[in-house]
């Protein structure tokens, strides 16, 4: 490449880095301003002493983990079955897993709330709807990760070998297939976790005390604590993505919704 081109490369790169880091640096500095005139971690202290924060954070962590478990329970057998025995369903299944891309989160939640807040399906207050909603929102990423993982192992041979040794379906799935796609599942799991932690719309309109609605509340009611919470939220996202990169080893990082 000509040297003139290199200057431009550096220019765009630096611009990108500045654009990326400036809001984060600003938020961090803002979060240190809780005590007048001095830089301190007072905002973080106040945040951690806020029972609403603990409650929201732990609520989202709990439901994130539950969503991952439900996702694994539903999608691993399905992906396995489609790959092994039911390839004719592949198009239909992939279409369904891509539907959350076409249906924006707000429309999806709108449909969920409107459908399930009238009898006879009055489950709008139950945790079932929350988990189901989170699972659907993370479905594209979870399913695709699992599918990619299955693609990289020889499902047919493993299954045949296990069956020839007399294993039943449950054993095959959970003791043979699952450990072999561990990496892919973890990648999907962390992405789902990041989605659930940052998910606002479903939690808000189902009136659940999750982390994101709490953050929205903080922004209105407090001056500096929302900055501390934002930094924590960002650190968490970074950790999740970092772990995915660690396990994924170069698999293309995927983009999450919930914005």
């Amino acid at each position: 490449m000509k040297n003139g081109g290199k200057v431009w490369s550096w220019f765009w790169m630096i611009l990108g880095i500045v654009y990326f880091f400036l809001p984060l640096v600003a938020t961090f500095i803002f979060s240190l301003r809780a005590k007048k005139g001095v830089l301190s971690f007072l905002a973080y202290q106040q945040l951690f002493n806020d029972s609403g924060f603990i409650k929201g954070f732990s609520y989202s962590i709990l439901w994130g983990v539950l969503t991952i478990i439900v996702g694994i329970l539903i999608f691993v057998p399905t992906a396995y079955w489609v790959r092994l025995r039911a390839p004719q369903f592949r198009t239909a299944v992939e279409f369904i897993t891509l539907l959350p891309f076409v249906i924006p989160a707000i429309v999806f939640v709108f449909g969920l709330v409107r459908t399930f807040s009238h009898p006879p399906f009055l489950i709008v207050d139950s945790p079932v709807l929350l988990i189901a909603g989170y699972t659907v929102l993370s479905m594209p990423y979870m399913y695709r990760s699992i599918d990619t993982g299955l693609r990289s192992i020889d499902v047919r041979t493993l299954t045949e070998a296990a069956q020839s040794l007399g294993a039943g379906w449950a054993t095959i799935l959970f003791q043979i297939i699952l450990p072999n796609i561990r990496v892919a599942i973890l990648s999907g799991a962390f992405l789902s976790f990041a989605i659930v932690m940052g998910e606002y719309i479903l939690a808000q309109y189902l009136a659940k005390p999750a982390f994101a609605p709490f953050l929205a509340y903080l922004i209105q009611e407090k001056a500096y604590e929302p900055a501390a919470a934002t930094i924590i939220s960002f650190a968490l996202t970074w950790a999740c993505m970092g772990i995915i990169n660690l396990f994924g080893r170069g698999q293309q990082t995927q983009i999450a919704g919930g914005h």
């Binding site: 951690f48 954070f57 968490l236 970074w238 950790a239 772990i243």
Partner: peptide, 17 residues
Amino acid sequence: AFHLIALFVTVGMVLSA
């Protein structure tokens, strides 16, 4: 190492919480 540090920072924050 970079990702590990990021992870520890987060875990540290959660633990201190």
